[in-house]
Amino acid sequence: MSERDSPQTPEGGTPIAAADPVYLADPVLDATVRMVVELAAQVWVERERRITIEQLLEARGLLSRADIEAFKPDASQAAALKAERSRFLEDVFKELRRIPLKS
């Protein structure tokens, strides 16, 4: 494993590793681990939101589960969902760009 130093300018001390160090035997493994952790974060974010919404809806008697199942987004809602999906994909899979080429 070869590892570059950072362009930051500490005076002496321990050299700082440059961005994206590889810790595992294969950079693909590093990316895979990052994606798994990111997915766990995304799952938690969604679960936290869903629990919040369900509790609010239930407390206020505003909505039934059948309403949620039957929901069809209009054009602007669909566009907003697509933008959210892009953000989600970027969060999880941005790691793919960080796998270095073999020298």
Partner: peptide, 15 residues
């Protein structure tokens, strides 16, 4: 301490 110095931006902490 070494890991934190090199991989968490604490270059002076070991010294």
């Amino acid at each position: 301490r070494w890991f934190d110095a090199r991989h968490n931006g604490e270059p002076y902490s070991q010294d």
